[in-house]
Design a protein around this nucleic acid. Sequence first.
DNA 1: TGGTTAACTATGGGATAACATGGGATTTCG
DNA 2: CGAAATCCCATGTTATCCCATAGTTAACCA
Lengths: 166, 166
Amino acid sequence: MQGLCGWFGERADVFLSTTINGVDAKGRVSVPADFRAVVRGGPFDGIIVWPSFDGPYLEGGGQALLERYQALIEDMDPYDDARIAFERAIFGAAKPLAFDANGRVTLPKELSDHAGLDGKATFVGLGSRFEIWAPEGYEEHKRSAQAFARDNKRSLRPGARPGGAA
Amino acid sequence: MQGLCGWFGERADVFLSTTINGVDAKGRVSVPADFRAVVRGGPFDGIIVWPSFDGPYLEGGGQALLERYQALIEDMDPYDDARIAFERAIFGAAKPLAFDANGRVTLPKELSDHAGLDGKATFVGLGSRFEIWAPEGYEEHKRSAQAFARDNKRSLRPGARPGGAA
DNA sequence: TGGTTAACTATGGGATAACATGGGATTTCG
DNA sequence: CGAAATCCCATGTTATCCCATAGTTAACCA
């Protein structure tokens, strides 16, 4: 297990950096080799991807990420409305995508539609998970995210955060 | 409890994603291949389905799920009203549906009536269990679930647990 | 150090197998 | 004997696997 302290150990077990890869006519896209290395060795040789319920992009990770979500959800009250909603929004829409021999996955139409992918896909590493965007959409999102970070940089001080998100 | 780390076999050992399959005139419906793979190897080659007491849809899973519910219910007080209600609602109405040679099951009329199925059925994977909806009903429900998840996303923070999760 | 080789990544196309689905035949039960 | 459920086989479509190619990076040897 890697923990946050292992980021710079023998190998980085986190998704890092941004890559643009092509999506062919069959919906196939090469997962960046760095990302494949993160999930390599796990019991499921592939990634798990679902549409973000927060915008026109996809969220993904290895099986470990999904297990973390599962653990979080199972800690909630069985009849909590939020629990039901998360279950349906995440598990109901998540697709396990296995790597082919060349490290590609096939994106189902629902997923590429949700992200508005058309020929190109941007993989964005975010530590324990990653996102998949249409390149134009990501550029725009990045600009506004940078502006937001600039305007709120004071909130990123060690003492300022209660939970410490990734 | 079987541990989060055992949930994934060679493939993902959880019910995931959403599939719409046809229900023919005989009441037969193909169980999604991914779902069949989850229960494969279990003692009963099929699924167990019962009407939800929470809405016009069906709940289901493999035999392992039923055994889990049984354990939960047996922990309750023998004369607890809730226990009796659960026993009747789940065990009293649950039907074991065996796969035919092509991976289909035949839905009894009580079940398809309860879900209002008419020609199509939506299978929704929810981790350890799944649901079966009439497609139109699920679409409507999904939208509200996604909106709820978006508005409450702060209560789901995988990055918030430093030591946890595999 | 310079040139050559080898390995890996990303990509394209075609063959193959699996899945979902329809119809018919046979059995079982009332 | 009739109705209904189960089993068996056929078919179109979709997804999966397997091959080949090109550009790049890393390794290796002279």
